[in-house]
């Protein structure tokens, strides 16, 4: 049996048509964001992984001050990963360059055995050549996931053909320019929601920041 461990957000995706308005735009969310606003923002963690050019990437330092959209996934992922990346690529392509240049999309593989830097680069280029792909060894990646508060990757057993499935969380974590994560985007979020939120995320003055 092939198994995959995925964040609970995937269950939401199975049938929730719009996780945005009902959960995000109420009185608890004065900014009109369609993502899920965290009551306790998360500090941007420090970790160093390897980018698709085989260079070390210091996550905290090299995304400092950017709107940083962080996602853990893998290139063999059937829908959650490519849908998130395709939606972000399509929306960012519509932004003015001065806005788009203030955004970093960071995709960290949870399947480093198969997602070589070259494969990651090729896969990400389907969506946006500026997207940053990171890899490392399993322990480094699991540590990065824990640092963000996500469950660590779980790699399932190989089946008779040698194939296996890898786990990941289904949410995009948005670190705003204050280097804190205030908003989560579960699977099911649409391009219209990103188009609404991305400019706001660059300009909101968060309390306490």
């Amino acid at each position: 049996m092939r198994r995959i461990v995925i964040g609970l957000a995937l269950v939401t995706a199975a049938c929730a048509p719009r996780p945005d308005a009902r959960s995000g735009a109420g009185e608890d969310n004065p900014f009109g964001l369609r993502g899920r606003v965290l009551s306790d923002p998360l500090a941007k963690p420090e970790f160093v992984l390897t980018d698709t050019g085989h260079r070390p990437f210091d996550f905290r330092r090299q995304t400092d001050g950017y709107l940083t959209l962080l996602f853990f996934g893998y290139t063999y992922c059937p829908d959650v990963c490519p849908v998130h990346m395709a939606n972000l690529g399509a929306v960012i392509a519509q932004l003015t360059p001065s806005v788009a240049d203030r955004i970093r999309v960071v995709f960290i593989t949870t399947d480093p055995a198969r997602d070589t830097p070259e494969r990651l680069r090729q896969w990400l280029d389907n969506f946006d050549r500026r997207f940053i792909g990171l890899t490392g060894d399993t322990a480094q990646i699991a540590a990065a996931e824990r640092a963000v508060g996500l469950p660590g990757a779980d790699i399932g057993p190989r089946d008779s053909t040698g194939a296996y499935e890898v786990g990941h969380s289904a949410v995009v974590v948005a670190f705003t320019p204050d280097n804190r994560a205030h908003v989560l985007y579960p699977f099911g979020i649409r391009q219209a929601d990103w188009a609404n939120d991305l400019p706001k995320l660059l300009t909101i003055a968060w309390p306490g920041s």
Binding site: G7, L8, A9, V11, T12, A14, A16, L38, G149
Partner: peptide, 14 residues
């Protein structure tokens, strides 16, 4: 805990 709480809330929505 930060992440699990909103995700469980999502399940109810689902």
């Amino acid at each position: 805990r930060l992440l699990i709480v909103p995700l469980v809330a999502g399940l109810v929505v689902a």
